[in-house]
C-alpha cells in the first residue's frame, strides 16, 4: 500500500528555541501582544510503500535514526493511505 506520511519535528519543551523567540518578538511588534509562545519546527512529507503492520515501526525508526535528534527534538506523525483512483 502507498502511504502519505507527514512528520512533525519540534524542539523539546524546555529547550530554548532562538528562532521561535525572535519570531515571537516580531509578532509583538506587529501588535499581536497576545502571543505567549512561538516554537519553530519542521514538517516533512513522505510518500512510501508499506503495509498496515509495518508503517508505524518504519516511520518511528526513521525518526529515531535520522529525521529527529532525540536529544533536543520531539516528533509526531500522521499516516494516510493513498487510494488510487
Amino acid at each position: 500500500m502507498t502511504y502519505e506520511v507527514k512528520v512533525y519535528v519540534t524542539l523539546k519543551e524546555g529547550v530554548l528555541d532562538p528562532q521561535g523567540s525572535a519570531v515571537k518578538n516580531s509578532l509583538h511588534h506587529l501588535g499581536f501582544g497576545g502571543v505567549e509562545d512561538v516554537r519553530i519546527g519542521k514538517v516533512m512529507s513522505l510518500r512510501m510503500e508499506a503495509t498496515e503492520d509495518t508503517i508505524d515501526n518504519q516511520v518511528k525508526e526513521m525518526c529515531d535514526k535520522l529525521l529527529a535528534n532525540p536529544v533536543i527534538e520531539d516528533y509526531s506523525y500522521e499516516t494516510e493511505e493513498v487510494v488510487s483512483s
Partner: peptide, 17 residues
Amino acid sequence: LLEAGLLPGAMRRNEKL
C-alpha cells in the same frame, strides 16, 4: 561527532541567530 553519538549532547542555533 554529536550526531553520531560519539559525544553527548546536541547543537542548537546560536542564541542571537
